[in-house]
């Protein structure tokens, strides 16, 4: 399913099904249609950024993160959740583990 939007002479193709697969989202066909149309318009709007020539590698004048440094934590064992707490929100668990559908073939 393709939604198309003409932007400054360019055709913007938005492959809704392919993007939904990347996003692990199952969509109904109604959702596919409306998202295709809406996202086409939103992408056309954000495309205005393409009209501006930004300086390459320009230094950020006002970067609040610039004063911060990488933070490394000490690799130490500390208090954390108990197994019971960690599993307390799992949709399905058994024997201290989260149950998921079979991933590997065979017995």
């Amino acid at each position: 399913m393709m939604a198309e939007e003409s932007v400054a002479g360019q055709r913007q193709c938005f492959d809704v099904a392919a993007i939904a697969a990347i996003a692990h989202l199952e969509l109904t066909s109604d959702e596919m249609d409306s998202l295709g149309e809406q996202l086409g318009r939103i992408v056309a709007y954000v495309d205005r950024l393409k009209a501006i020539a930004f300086a390459e590698n320009s230094e950020q004048f006002f970067d609040v993160t610039a004063s911060l440094r990488n933070v490394y934590g000490a690799d130490e064992v500390g208090d954390s959740f108990t197994q019971e707490e960690a599993l307390s929100n799992a949709p399905e668990s058994r024997d201290g583990q989260i149950v998921v559908p079979r991933i590997v073939e065979g017995d």
Partner: peptide, 20 residues
């Protein structure tokens, strides 16, 4: 399916835009 059932329209829209 969990994400398709659990998320509302705006969240789906933004996840899709982000994936794009």
């Amino acid at each position: 399916k969990s994400r398709g059932e659990g998320f509302g329209a705006e969240v789906k829209r933004r996840i899709m835009l982000g994936a794009f």
